[in-house]
């Protein structure tokens, strides 16, 4: 007897609905409602931004607040246009972007490699556990002057950004590895798999979404680390622009840098979301055949 002879048990074969069938009017209504809802949400988001800008502009112009301290959207815009025409803004943005992406890649790689090492070396894990917790809790910002002295003005920016970001990656990925389905590990062992194979065939692929989540947490921290590093030591970058602008009391310039920072975080987040689609695509990690 072959298995297919057994026939369909209740709930056995998952048959998809026949293609090309007419959707019911109720379904079409539901679909339209979904679309309306999505449009409504985007409209509300844009409305919020617009309202914020209007209130800001009006409050400054009506002198409800001191425009010297707060600046206002139209001033920020014209300041931005001037800075763009000079090429100044582009230069500073580029410097910060390169520093952030470099620190992000380095801290992600370092965190994952350390997590793999801890997974491979259970004794090291036991020994280092309290140090990791303390290391994570130490406010890394407190290390800025030390890094400046040790690494010099350029490298200290990377040093501080990596120090700020690496622990969250290490801890998140480490916990993910620990919580990998024990039964899958057991299965691979019964099939004769080595420790290395357990790592590459089970632990890493099973934790792809954990690694992506760690990257999302990392990107914001890398940016914080870079800006703080630039506050201390840089001759360029948005952090430098903010410090410089506030020293010469140019709030337009400061606000302008902050707006660009917002745009950068958004762009980096979108970048990681795209990466996420690629990394967690079920088809990416598959048997090499």
């Amino acid at each position: 007897m072959s298995m297919s002879d057994v026939g369909k048990m209740p709930g056995e074969i998952a048959t998809p609905a026949p293609a090309g069938r007419q959707a019911s009017p109720a379904y079409l209504n539901w679909q339209r409602a979904q679309v309306r809802r999505r449009i409504g949400i985007v409209a509300a988001q844009l409305g919020l931004i617009a309202a914020f800008l209007v209130v800001w502009e009006v409050a400054a112009r009506m002198l409800w607040v001191n425009p010297l301290l707060t600046s206002y959207p139209s001033a920020v815009t014209s300041s931005m246009i001037t800075l763009l025409q000079d090429g100044v803004l582009f230069k500073h943005t580029w410097v910060t972007l390169v520093e952030t992406i470099t620190s992000f890649v380095a801290s992600t790689a370092l965190g994952v490699v350390l997590a793999v090492w801890l997974w491979l070396a259970p004794t090291a894990r036991r020994i280092l556990d309290p140090f990791l917790v303390v290391g994570n809790a130490v406010p890394k910002i407190a290390l800025v002057p030390i890094f400046y002295i040790w690494l010099g003005p350029a490298l200290s920016i990377y040093g501080i950004a990596i120090a700020v970001a690496v622990f969250i990656v290490l801890l998140m990925v480490h916990i993910g590895f620990e919580q990998t389905d024990k039964n899958k590990v057991k299965l691979v062992r019964t099939l004769g798999g080595t420790t290395w194979q357990i790592l590459t065939k089970v632990v890493l692929p099973a934790n792809r979404s954990v690694i992506v989540a760690a990257m999302k947490a990392n990107i914001g921290l890398s940016l914080v680390g870079v800006i703080v590093g630039e506050f201390q030591s840089a001759k360029a970058g948005l952090g430098y622009l903010i410090v410089y602008g506030s020293q010469i009391f140019q709030m337009d310039m400061v606000m302008c840098a902050i707006v660009i920072l917002g745009v950068i975080s958004l762009a980096l987040f979108v970048g990681i979301s795209l990466l996420e689609k690629w990394i967690t695509d079920v088809r990416l990690i598959r048997a090499e055949n």
């Binding site: 019964t190 004769g192 798999g193 080595t194 065939k201 089970v202 792809r208 598959r286 048997a287």
Partner: peptide, 30 residues
């Protein structure tokens, strides 16, 4: 672990990131 032995667990422990064929090929691959 001996090659003579095949183990089936309570959970099917199929790897959700592999196709059914790729899951079936796990043992020979390892």
């Amino acid at each position: 672990p001996s090659a003579a032995i095949g183990f089936m667990l309570q959970q099917d422990t199929l790897f959700e990131w592999r196709t059914i064929l790729e899951n079936t090929l796990l043992g020979p691959e390892l």
